[in-house]
Design a protein around this nucleic acid. Structure first.
Length: 403
RNA sequence: GGGGAGGUUCCCGAGCGGUCAAAGGGGGCAGACUGUAAAUCUGUUGUUUCGGCUUCGAAGGUUCGAAUCCUUCUCUCCCCA
């Protein structure tokens, strides 16, 4: 096997979709020596288990990690159960409310399950931060902290902004990058993957390794996946697609992204590379973007739920939205022999969180029973009649009421 | 330790004794439109048995009446030490 050829082959796969690799040639050199000496690279990814909700944005780096695994490298997952309790300051304008140990533990577990939908568990080493950090002495902590200068820490954009705005910045928050860097030291990582927003933290890892005479890890940054509305995908913007979302919901949400996100999503969320992307770009110019987006949605559902499910969702979507048909599976509500106001039914069935909201929906003309619009907020459903009815609330919520 | 400024509804942010369930923006929801759950426009946005009921950091107080005034507590920011 030609060494150079193999190095370039790996580089091409690994750099596809990447936003930045630091240093330029660092990754290439690491790969070269790995192939040379037959020792797989240790590729670190940190997990921040601050919430049990993993979304497709998070999965971008895990997709990349999987590519490393497929090339024979070793995945090293760090469960940041300590850093989670500090809260990643990046992008935060507030100090994070501290999580309890139990919350962090619970989050870690669900997080891990979701990651292993993409990452190969059998080729992964998992470390809990707490296992290494709980026994540290103050002496060790101070020695490590002394490797960083305060001025440098304060160049972190988020810290700078917070200080500039006069927001609170706690002393321990400065430790977030330090702990993350420390992880790299402890697991002797050759490469660390992360989102572009992790640049500061990951580069700190390089600094710390260097200061201990270790070869600094190469850093590979993935772009941030934009959410369905074009902003950074984040649960707090409500523009995310949870990994745990059911397939139908995933499909629908992918269909709601704007057209200019189709290519970035194919690249980052569906891992298409080079040739495939240029082909898609070509097709986008000539075909209805909706159809290409449908392929994207199918592909994403396939990745997490399999091809069969993807096909089912696609049909379901076409039926419901393109043809305006009622979806196959809709929630049911049993009226029994009761007599109930529509508003109460909407609330009790969980379709709407309060009677007021349900009332608004009706007044605004967003509710239909068996296709007929109901405008009276006091409308009452009585038992008997002609069996079950289908309620359509808003554009896409349905409820079958049995009576 | 001293001095000053603040904590408002999901978020940002106005209000500074009654006309405040509280401006404006964001987000959400709905309607129109559309190839789309995009964009745009319009409406709406505490809760309710529609009588009310509970909100403006917390607890008390003044007042016929408080988000608005007073007291204490608590949290945050700034300046000085």
């Amino acid at each position: 096997m030609d060494l150079n050829h193999e190095v370039e082959r790996q580089m091409e796969i690994l750099s596809s979709g990447a936003a930045e690799i630091i240093p330029d040639n660092g990754l290439r050199e690491k790969i070269r020596s790995s192939i040379g000496n037959g020792i797989p690279l240790r590729v670190k990814v940190g997990i921040d288990p601050t919430s049990p909700h993993v979304h497709l944005g998070h999965m971008v780096v895990y997709g990349k990690l999987r590519q490393f695994q497929d090339l024979g490298h070793k995945a090293v997952l760090i469960i940041g159960d300590y850093t989670a309790r500090i809260g990643d300051p990046t992008g935060r304008n507030k100090e994070r409310a501290p999580l309890t140990e139990e919350e962090v533990r619970a989050n870690s577990l669900t997080y891990r399950d979701q990651i292993f939908k993409i990452v190969d568990e059998s080729k992964t080493e998992v470390h809990f931060q707490s296992r290494g950090f709980d026994t540290l002495t103050l002496q060790e902590i101070m020695t490590t902290a002394s490797a960083f200068s305060t001025a440098h820490m304060l160049t972190h954009e988020t810290f700078r902004k917070r200080l500039g705005k006069g927001d609170r910045l706690s002393l321990h928050e400065l430790f977030y990058p330090v702990l993350q860097a420390w992880d790299s030291l402890l697991v002797r990582s050759d490469v660390e993957l992360g989102g572009l927003d992790q640049k500061f933290n990951i580069l700190c890892g390089r600094d710390l390794q260097k200061s201990r005479g270790m070869s600094p890890q190469a850093a590979l940054f993935m772009p941030l996946l934009e959410g369905t509305d074009g902003r950074k995908m984040s649960k707090s913007f409500g523009n995310h697609i949870p990994v745990n979302a059911d397939p139908q919901e995933k499909f629908g949400k992918v269909m709601s992204i704007s057209d200019n996100l189709i290519i970035p999503w194919f690249t980052l969320a569906a891992q298409k590379s080079g040739e495939q992307i240029s082909l898609l770009n070509e097709r986008l110019r000539n075909e209805n973007p909706r159809d290409i987006k449908m392929e994207l949605a199918s592909e994403i559902v396939r990745i997490y739920h399999g091809a069969e499910e993807a096909q089912r969702c696609r049909l379901g979507f076409v039926n419901q939205f393109s043809r305006g048909e009622i979806p196959e599976e809709i929630p049911r509500f049993f009226l029994g022999s009761r007599e109930m106001k529509l508003t109460s039914i909407l609330k009790e069935s969980g379709l709407y969180p309060s009677i007021s909201e349900a009332r608004r929906l009706i007044v605004q003309g967003g509710l239909k029973i068996d296709g007929k619009q109901i405008g009276d907020p006091d409308f009452t459903l009585t038992p008997g009649g002609d069996g079950s009815v289908i309620i359509k609330a808003g554009k896409r919520k349905y409820l079958k009421v049995n009576r």
